[in-house]
Design a protein around this nucleic acid. Structure first.
Length: 370
RNA sequence: GUAGAUUUAGUGUAGUUGGUUAACACGCCAGUUUGUGGCACUGGAGAUCGUGGGUUCGAAUCCCACACUCUACC
């Protein structure tokens, strides 16, 4: 059972402060969820994730099905036991891989055939099969199997895809047998009437939570904001609202302002591995020469392990040498930065002040728009 | 001392009948990254081709001298 408890609504923005209750504990919302595709948030131990504020993480149906296999994970006692994470887990359905691995798959009404990037073998993913995999993984929240449309897509294609995703959602619901919470995913691309149709059809199926999928996939920011603000109010108020794939501070704050409760993204850990940090004064490309002799912390306002112990000059050295520790220290910092940012967002909502805070934050972070 | 080989960007190299802005890798400088196939991708700066002279319409490329480094022999 997964339930949503609304604690407070920001009087000046409509942002929601709440709690989501799950079998593995509560999560405070709005929340940022680090992504651990292959049963690991890359380079970080579960202790480090906890110390840096992670309350819930993601796993991925597609990738775990191929390696090590969902049957093995079931045998190991489920994903929680397998990876030693005792807090909530949300599993993505593989719907994003329909988009990101588009060169390796074929879509039909029945499902999606993927050609494995590992050995070329063919695997047919249906909504029923995805439910079985996610049940074997044993996550607290499982996502319905959908298609994430690319940007841009034509109205005709997006409509056809959205309607099929709705039919797949029904099949997921019918095939689902455990008490794990199954969330529906609203699609419809960048067309408002399609978003509305998708939201209404999915609401009629009464899922315990809803997500907006298919945004934050490379579109201009204005398009993201437009669909976010249009779609969020169409989602039930008494259930968790989740925007899939958002990880930059502005996208997360805009989502919170729109009344969204959850967001996830690979961004903080990926850019960390490529040598970039998010700080209170904006993005820092640690490899840049300007930090060669900089013996101050990455972010003087940050209290994470990395900022308490290491200098920019040292981090730059590690990044330039492609040392594992550099990736780890920046990942720790970026995860801490985002979980801490969301902690602050929750406080500002409680004080009905998120809108003002967002303006101050954007100014300091260096965003020119908004 | 003799013979041979070598000398092209910070480093290592490509450039085979002489022909427009001399190529590549690494390094350097910068940018991108948003439900993670790929620890990646995209740009940029940087070389009077060892030095001097000659042949030629034209030389990194051919010729001469010198210098440098390496190897072998005396």
């Amino acid at each position: 059972m997964v339930t949503y408890e609304l604690l407070h609504v920001d009087k000046n923005s409509g942002a929601r402060r709440g709690v989501i209750h799950t079998p593995h504990g509560d999560i405070q919302t709005p929340i940022f969820m680090p992504v651990g595709t292959q049963a690991t948030v890359k380079s970080m131990t579960v202790e480090e994730l906890k110390e840096n504020g992670a309350e819930i993480i993601l796993g991925n149906t597609y990738h775990l099905y191929f390696r090590p296999g969902d049957e093995l994970i079931k045998e190991a006692g489920g994903l929680h036991n397998f990876m030693r994470w005792d807090r909530p887990i949300l599993t993505d359905s593989g719907g994003f891989q329909v988009f990101s691995l588009s060169a390796l798959r074929t879509i039909s009404e029945e499902g999606v055939e993927f050609k494995s990037e590992l050995d070329g073998s063919k695997h047919f993913f249906t909504p029923e099969k995805v439910m079985k995999i996610e049940e074997n993984l044993g996550s607290d929240i499982m996502m319905a199997f959908d298609e994430c449309c690319p940007y841009p897509s034509t109205y005709e294609y997006t409509k056809k895809s959205m309607e099929r995703t709705t039919r797949w959602a029904k099949r997921c619901k019918d095939a689902h047998t455990t008490d794990q919470a199954l969330f529906g995913i609203i699609q419809g691309g960048f067309y408002e009437d399609l978003r509305k149709q998708s939201a209404e059809d999915l609401k009629a199926m009464d899922f315990p939570g809803y997500a907006i999928g298919g945004i934050s996939i490379g579109e201009p920011k204005e398009e993201y904001i437009k669909i976010l603000k249009y779609t969020a109010p169409l989602m039930p108020a008494d259930k968790p609202r989740y925007v899939m794939g958002i990880g930059s501070p502005d996208y997360l704050i805009e989502a919170a302002l729109a009344g969204i409760d959850m967001g996830d993204c690979v961004l903080p850990t990926r850019i960390a591995r490529h040598g970039t940090a998010m700080t209170s004064h904006g993005k820092v490309v640690v490899r840049n020469a300007t930090y060669e002799h900089d013996y101050g912390p990455l972010d003087e306002e940050c209290e994470c392990y990395t900022c308490r112990n290491y200098t920019r000059a040292y981090l730059r050295h590690l990044v330039k040498c492609n040392e594992i520790l550099g990736m780890r220290l920046l990942s720790i910092h970026n995860i801490y930065f985002l979980t801490n940012l969301m902690k602050r967002v929750r406080i500002e909502i409680e004080n009905d002040n998120l809108l003002n805070f967002s303006k101050e934050f954007y100014k300091k972070y260096g965003y020119t728009k908004e």
